Simulated scan of single mutants.
Amino acid sequence: MSTQLWRVDELMRDLTVKRIRARLDRAELLRVRRGVYGDQPCGEEDELRALMLCLPDEAMLTRHSAAQRYGFGVLREDLVHVQLPATVPRPRLPGLVVHHSVLPAQPVVVRGLPCVPAARCAVDLARTVRRLDALPVLDAAIRSGAVGPDELLAEAAAHRRLRGVRQARDLVPLADGRAECRQESQLRLILLDGRLPAPEPQLWVHDGDGIPRYRLDRGYRKRRIGIEYDGVSHLGRDQLRYDRERMNWLDVNGWRMRYFTDRDLYSRPAHIVATIRAALS
């Protein structure tokens, strides 16, 4: 059950200051934030609701915070991001990042809290985070079902003259909801930036009877080249056994697999491009 929250001005409509203090002494009321009280200990969601009660009525969750609620929060962020019109003074509260916006937006209520529209959220992130993180946001936004490619294109067009909009406009046409994790999107972007052909995502390999046998993260079907990212999920013993069986079957059936790790993605992307270019040659 969620915590019932009240601003102090709401409590004072029915209670005197003395009665409010008495309820606090008896733990019938608990202070959640300055000026906001609840009827029981708060969880993370209740604390977010309490923070929103401290903000102007025009406040909407945006960027990382809205993306998390929409289901495409692939970038970790502990701070709460809200958007306010440029004419509204900027509140200064711990854990809060305020973004003034010159573009109007109608709030969308997502799990009880107002958010900027999903397309606005995705494009704002895509134009302000680093390029390697921007495409994963756009891919995840489409995969979540919160927004479609046409909506992203229209939103990117509306952001003209804003900081970073060129990056967002360049990446929106590349967005593909078939990517299943941030690293898959980053790997694809590295290949595209290296002027290599776009690999097919979530590529199924069939056996001699035409039955799907294994699915590859990415690959080039005609050249029988598979590309995969190896993360921590591949370190378990059972997963290792499965991977070896799968690797041997693919090798016997003429597939050349290329595997990459976080070191390749974040420290030596040129190695990825050179490896795949050599395989394609």
Rank of each mutant, 00 (worst) to 15 (best):
Q183W: 04
L203I: 08
R182E: 12
G208Y: 07
D207F: 10
P199Y: 09
C181M: 11
E184Y: 10
L189Y: 01
E200Q: 15
R215C: 15
R188A: 06
R215A: 14
P212N: 12
E200D: 12
R213Y: 14
Q183K: 14
R195P: 02
G219L: 01
Q183R: 10
Q183E: 04
D209H: 14
G210A: 03
P201R: 10
P199D: 10
I190P: 00
P201Q: 06
G194F: 07
R218I: 01
Q186K: 08
Y214I: 03
A198H: 09
D207P: 13
Q186Y: 02
L216M: 04
Q186D: 01
L196K: 10
P199Q: 14
P201T: 09
R182M: 06
L203R: 13
Q186I: 03
P212M: 04
Q183P: 06
I190Y: 00
L196Q: 13
L191M: 14
V205K: 08
G208Q: 12
G194D: 09
E200A: 06
R188H: 05
E180D: 05
R195G: 07
P212D: 04
E184R: 13
V205P: 06
P212I: 05
E180Y: 08
G219F: 00
C181I: 02
L203C: 08
E180A: 07
Q183V: 05
E200L: 05
Q202I: 09
R218M: 11
